[in-house]
């Protein structure tokens, strides 16, 4: 372990965190703009040219809000819960490659932070840990709406995690590796979405449920639960939950693009490696557009239907998909 390698890791980590937090700010604007256009409105256009400074204005507003702690909230866990939500969201993309190796000044660098041989398992591990923030936020607020929202979110996330994990198995079987870089490289000529259409659809549905986005945003159903586990949070603590939600959206889009849409591969990447991150960015932006489109289109589904859909439709379907994929690979010889 030499110093230059450590320096490389530190720089890459800083890049990931800056891209994700900057991405969060502009995904909020992207969402508001797209939603507005879909609802025949204009959207935010006052702060800066075409509303481009709106996220900065929002950030300043949230920073100057009063930090308020409810009287009987748990004094340790209440402030810890937003952190436990943000940290998994920030670290989950560490195993995703952004591009093929590039050469700068005669030295070759890999464009990924950690190309570990258990990358796909790492994604599942971080997903399973990310549930705690929401659960504990609901419990520690000492509010029955928060509590119900937290319980709902927990039940929903652990139910859809199964189908999510199963949908990873298709690309893993096709690539014969748990490393995300190998999975991406196996799609250089043919994207996995062609070979794994059911897996890709299961991944999309389960990931929407996993990040609690509409139409699966039951934990925040305002008619029934005011704002669910977010009810008692204000100021920067609220901003952290908000940030986690959008960073998770970016993260699941990056994972989806890497597992099913060929990651950074696209025409010309083999000769010009710097096109890799640009292709990945375009794919992530398109998937995010899909998320927003779904939010603008579909109404929230009922909670019992959400659970029975997850357990009785999505999970068996994902198991069946894995069995068929494994059988075909065994017969064809993968």
């Amino acid at each position: 372990m030499n110093a230059s390698l450590v320096l490389q890791w530190v720089i890459k980590s800083i890049i990931i965190i800056l891209v994700l937090t900057g991405g969060f700010a502009y995904v909020t604007l992207y969402e508001r703009k797209v939603l507005a256009r879909m609802q025949v409105r204009i959207g935010p256009n006052r702060a800066g040219p075409a509303g481009l400074l709106q996220p900065i204005a929002d950030a300043f507003k949230l920073i100057f809000k009063e930090t308020f702690t409810p009287a009987k909230a748990d004094k340790w866990i209440y402030p810890l819960a937003p952190l436990l939500t943000v940290i998994p969201a920030l670290i989950i993309t560490a195993v995703i490659p952004w591009g093929p190796p590039v050469t700068i000044g005669g030295k070759t660098f890999t464009l990924s932070l950690a190309d570990i041989n258990t990358g796909a398992l790492y994604l599942l591990t971080v997903t399973s840990i990310s549930v705690y923030g929401v659960t504990l936020a609901g419990w520690s607020s000492n509010n029955k709406y928060s509590m119900l929202g937290g319980l709902r979110a927990t039940a929903q996330m652990i139910s859809y995690e199964l189908a999510l994990g199963m949908s990873y198995l298709g690309p893993i079987l096709l690539a014969g590796s748990l490393s995300i870089t190998s999975i991406v490289n196996s799609q250089q000529h043919l994207w996995n979405v062609v070979l794994q259409p059911i897996g890709a659809i299961i991944y999309m549905i389960a990931s929407i449920a996993e990040v609690n986005r509409s139409p699966f945003d039951m934990p925040e159903a305002e008619q029934e639960l005011t704002a669910g586990y977010l009810t008692e949070y204000a100021s920067m603590k609220f901003a952290m939950f908000y940030m986690a939600e959008y960073i998770k959206m970016i993260a699941v889009s990056m994972i989806g693009a890497s597992l099913f849409l060929g990651g950074f591969w696209g025409p010309g990447v083999a000769s010009i490696p710097w096109l890799g991150p640009i292709y990945l960015f375009i794919k992530v932006a398109l998937l995010l557009f899909g998320f927003i489109w779904i939010r603008a289109t579909l109404p929230r589904i009922r909670y019992d239907r959400l659970m029975s859909f997850g357990w009785k439709v999505l999970f068996p379907l994902s198991v069946l998909n894995v069995m068929i994929t494994a059988g075909v690979i065994l017969l064809v010889g993968g």
């Binding site: 398992l121 599942l124 591990t125 399973s128 840990i129 659960t135 509590m147 319980l151 039940a155 652990i158």
Partner: peptide
């Protein structure tokens, strides 16, 4: 990673869930 996913993730979240419920 399996230890974190299974024990710290899946099993303990059920413990917490039951305690809270």
């Amino acid at each position: 990673l399996a230890q974190i996913t299974v024990y710290a993730g899946a099993i303990m979240i059920l413990f917490l869930f039951v305690i809270m419920m």
